[in-house]
Amino acid sequence: MNHVRLKLTDLQKRYNRRTIFQQIGADVTGPGSLAIVGRNGSGKSTLAKIIAGVLSPTSGSVHLEVGGSEIKREVRHRSIGFVAPYLTLYDEFTAVENIVILESMRNGRAPAQADVEAWLEEMGLAARRHERVGTFSSGMKQRVKYATALIHRPALLILDEPTANLDEDGARFVEKVVQRQSGSGIVVVATNESHEAAWCRSRIELGTR
């Protein structure tokens, strides 16, 4: 894995007149991990989206570096994987189709069939890979999201409420993913759960100011 660095500098987010968070900073060099913790409404998901580049901070900056090159916000999606319970897949497509279509849009080429099969096998979805995602439970959908987020081996993996909707097996799998990612790139975990935050080596606490 290339050298990865995530640097957050003096981030602030305001909605109208309400300040969600301010003066948020961190500097993580991969292999590494970062937990974002805080009470409900403290802005964990907002910060995760800002790091992913889908929301702009009111002030401050996010700097992602992979292999010594800065990754601009417009192309950050190619270097990150993002999993969250509020992320939605295409219900009309099967698990395989969701993975292939989203990866084709991300990288301009379909992933190797063997990779797709391997990820679905690891997620425990091999038997239902050709069924439409609309028929899946929320936990199964969450597993497909992990496959779509991990198939391109992202330098930065962002997990918001990583074990939401998952059973014990799923939660163990997520812990394994976090360990694997924090050994090769950077993983950011936004969570309310103290045991999930403990998976990470550094942390940002929101809502303490």
Partner: peptide, 11 residues
């Protein structure tokens, strides 16, 4: 359908 965020994170 809520897939706008998925698209933002994909392309």
């Amino acid at each position: 359908r809520g897939t706008a965020l998925t698209l933002q994170l994909t392309t």
